[in-house]
Design a protein around this nucleic acid. Structure first.
Lengths: 165, 165
DNA sequence: ACCGAAAAGCGAACCGTTTGCATTAGCGTG
DNA sequence: CACGCTAATGCAAACGGTTCGCTTTTCGGT
């Protein structure tokens, strides 16, 4: 789907927060909330805007440090935290490893094979039924993008006492 | 939902591995695979059989140590690992904290409010549509019990740049 | 240019979990 | 029923991912 995605509740998609579309726009947003447009922030944003989804912090830090070697890992963490608080980016847990980050606009849900790790990007519509049911029964609005859904892919034997020989 | 739960794929529930129903049954299973019925194993199983779901390792270790103080945390981890490998128990990630363990037979999916932490236990049927769609499109059999589904409960404002005041 | 506040750099702490190693103890065998 | 092989334990130390405290730097409004 081409549309910017948002929480799923079975109703027509909510307006969805307008994600800023460029580094400078984000920095303007940062400034407008009392933050500052620092060098490391700018570089981090450039990295985020210029590369794919599902990037670990280590990964992002390496990319940032390629351009600005003095930027510390903890600074990257703090900037990611800030950007997430502003709604610019989002983090996702794809499994047991480190979280992955991406621009809020490009977040999506995942199906992950618990055995071989194979990953499927799941369009929002797959979650319509669940979203509707959760809303009706519990008044709960699901956001299936934050944690992946585990399971078994077609190539891996069905779940059972693990015979991982 | 009296039935023992299993993976969801839109078809009638699979037979589901017959979870042993008592400590001694599990220990027999352990022995049958070359393992040993040790004291710490027995106590851990007693704890698992006698108390609720969603127990953290720390939690379980404390309960075990109440009866057998010398049992070390790492032993609990190793035993949990072994029991999970045998299919007796299962662990679940309810959020960012530690994993929680429970008997395989009592595992279920969760909806968790990302803002207030409120938790709903979701019956399998909620996932039927998703399970069917995932199976049709990707040949993927979901197991929605391993990671919780995040979202917002009725009392918390819809997802957006976090105003956590 | 100045100053208050936000952010950076750095290292150390943190939490949950795993691992290496020497010792103990199940349990099938003889 | 003692013996011995090996699984399992206790312990401490390492681990990976993330957070924190502190001092210094830097942003950016005046």
């Amino acid at each position: 789907m081409g549309a910017v995605s948002g929480p799923v509740n079975g109703s027509p998609p909510a307006p969805a927060a307008p994600s800023p579309a460029s580094v400078e726009e984000v920095l303007a947003l940062v400034r407008s909330t009392g933050g500052r447009a620092t060098a490391s922030r700018r570089v981090l944003l450039e990295v985020l805007f210029s590369s794919g989804d599902h990037r670990s912090v280590e990964d992002l830090a390496a990319a940032v440090q390629a351009r600005a070697p003095e930027v510390h890992l903890s600074t990257v963490y703090r900037n990611l935290e800030e950007l997430e608080r502003l709604g610019v980016i989002v983090h996702t847990h794809l499994g047991h490893g480190p979280a992955t980050y991406q621009l809020a606009g490009s977040a999506h849900a995942h199906l992950i094979c618990e055995r071989c790790g194979r990953r499927f990007e799941a369009p929002e519509e797959l979650f319509e039924g669940l979203g509707r049911a959760a809303a009706e029964r519990y008044g709960f609005t699901i956001d299936p993008r934050h944690f992946a859904i585990f399971g078994r892919c077609a190539d891996c034997p069905p779940s059972r006492p693990r015979d991982d020989g």
